[in-house]
Design a protein around this nucleic acid. Sequence first.
DNA 1: CTCGCCCTTGACGCCGACGTCAAGTCCAGT
DNA 2: ACTGGACTTGACGTCGGCGTCAAGGGCGAG
Lengths: 123, 123
Amino acid sequence: MRIGELARLGGTTTRALRYYESLGLLTARRGANGQREYDEADLRLVAEIRSLTGIGFALEDTRPFVECLRDGHPSGDACPASVAVYRRKLAELDECIERLEAARSRVRTQLAEAEKRSRPCAR
Amino acid sequence: MRIGELARLGGTTTRALRYYESLGLLTARRGANGQREYDEADLRLVAEIRSLTGIGFALEDTRPFVECLRDGHPSGDACPASVAVYRRKLAELDECIERLEAARSRVRTQLAEAEKRSRPCAR
DNA sequence: CTCGCCCTTGACGCCGACGTCAAGTCCAGT
DNA sequence: ACTGGACTTGACGTCGGCGTCAAGGGCGAG
């Protein structure tokens, strides 16, 4: 298949696919006319990339998963490097959630105090 | 005081202060030599901006607070517009935290499965 | 006078993940 | 032959919040 169909099937755009290729995440065979030619394995890679970025992974973080799949593993997270990214991401998420929850509680406090001041005698 | 001192006292940089001014968050009187001149009220504004951005507010979100202070209110969140930003921000934080927690649980699941596959007979 | 430090404006750089436009190529259908 | 759609590369634009550099002006101390 060509890039347009891969984009459609992968739920993304041709621009994104070329961008992935520029990062070395995707590689394409070229047909006689110079156009990129893809197969099911490439679709699998795109699916992996989209799935991970959809969760919030940076493109660079998807690299180990993609390489793992290209090495013939049935699953992108079958390799130690991928699992390491899982762990790092988990730690990042924990920290991020913690910070946001702290921020939320501060905002809540501020909001409560502001309302108390504006309606000092409200029930 | 001049911009350097305001930056020091406010815990930021001169570049940031000039940027705030370009956004209309800060205004400065000019001395005879063309240099910016600030007072305690300006320091108060900077403190408000830094406090809010420190929690994760965008600069634009601090505008109502700053204007509220400039209107003579003792607190930046004494105005309805500021309180509205609090509410909006709270909703944003709730949604963001929710998404991150969902992502975290997905990553946890993936990690657990990946480890199960890599060490099928581990205790 | 020079040194050094602070100040001025203007403008480009950075990060990530593409969007969007330009100008041209390739191919199938009518 | 012509049209329309899909493809190619290259390059600039976007968003936020500044960092950093350039090229100068102002001012007190020695």
